[in-house]
């Protein structure tokens, strides 16, 4: 018998033992876990005790089921679908509830203590306890890492959604004149923001049958190549709809930057101020048609 065989055997014995304990003492372990979480008392979220119990029961059951399979312990938390989903849900619930990331990871790691206590309580033989402890550590450390990972991504998703909502609010399209709309942009322009601006502006153009859209960038601190490209895209989309676009509020330093970057805005109608842009826009809407008839 080689050493690795010994290791494999003691591992599988440990695994069977932990699985057995999880099955036999499911309720006790779950209760103890909830108790430990409540003792940490810094949940910081609005999870009720009954929700915690529900969560605990599900997790303990999933752990037992997952250990009963043959996926290696280190990969169970990520690889076992049920277990993965339960840990993910658990973290997301805390992320949404405003719990700190530490609390979220500790919640999962507290299960370690509950489980170890339970194993120690059920067996007289201390042989192989080390292997059991190792196994529990491997399993729940991975689960803890997963929960942390999910927590961070979950918070990011929330931030993303909130910033999207903020974008919607921060890019109002206003009607300045008959058939003339304006979007005063304030702050940095990035891809996401440009997309929201474009969507809102184009929809407003269609709803109002506007002929000219003014994009005022007085409040945009810097213009780099990406921002200029985003502006160009918006102008192109407006033109595809059959309307015209005027960009106003290009301050001298920005004009210099644009020139230095070699960005070609020559096909775009630009004006120094919003007032000038409005005058230009009114002229466009009043302009006679190309065949000499009045445009209106």
């Amino acid at each position: 018998m080689t050493t690795s065989d010994t290791a494999t055997t003691s591992d599988s014995v440990a695994r069977a033992r932990v699985t057995e304990v999880l099955r036999a003492n499911a309720d006790a372990i779950a209760d103890r876990w909830v108790q430990l979480q409540l003792e940490q008392a810094v949940l910081g979220s609005d999870l009720t005790e009954s929700e915690l119990h529900e969560e605990a029961d599900a997790l303990v059951a999933a752990l037992a089921a997952a250990l009963g399979g043959d996926v290696p312990v280190q990969r169970l938390a990520h690889g076992d679908q049920d277990l993965n989903r339960i840990v993910t849900d658990l973290s997301l619930r805390r992320a949404r509830g405003g719990a700190s990331p530490t609390v979220t990871s500790l919640a999962v790691l507290a299960l370690k203590q509950a489980l170890l206590e339970s194993v120690r309580g059920t067996t007289g033989e201390s042989d192989g306890l080390l292997a059991v402890a190792l196994l529990i550590n491997q399993l729940l450390d991975a689960a803890g890492a997963l929960s942390f990972e999910v927590y961070v991504e979950g918070r990011e998703a929330i931030i993303h959604r909130q910033s999207h909502q903020l974008l919607e609010m921060s890019t109002p399209v206003v009607r300045l004149w008959r058939q003339v709309l304006a979007v005063p942009l304030i702050g940095t322009l990035d891809t996401a923001r440009t997309q929201v601006v474009m969507e809102n502006l184009l929809q407003a153009i269609q709803d109002d049958e506007a002929l000219v859209a003014i994009i005022d960038i007085t409040g945009v601190p810097t213009v780099d190549t990406a921002v200029a490209q985003h502006l160009m895209q918006t102008v192109k989309a407006v033109r595809l709809m059959g309307a015209d676009c005027v960009i106003s509020g290009i301050r001298p330093p920005i004009a210099q930057t644009i020139a230095q970057l070699g960005i070609d805005l020559s096909t775009i109608l630009t004006r120094a101020t919003l007032a000038d842009a409005l005058a230009a826009a009114i002229k466009i809407t009043d302009a006679p048609g190309p065949d000499g008839t009045d445009g209106r």
């Binding site: 474009m198 184009l202 269609q206 192109k236 989309a237 407006v238 033109r239 595809l240 709809m241 059959g242």
Partner: peptide, 16 residues
Amino acid sequence: GMRPPVAITLVELGIE
């Protein structure tokens, strides 16, 4: 009468 979503998509496709 190009619809707004169509205009946006075309521009992103790179077609003017």
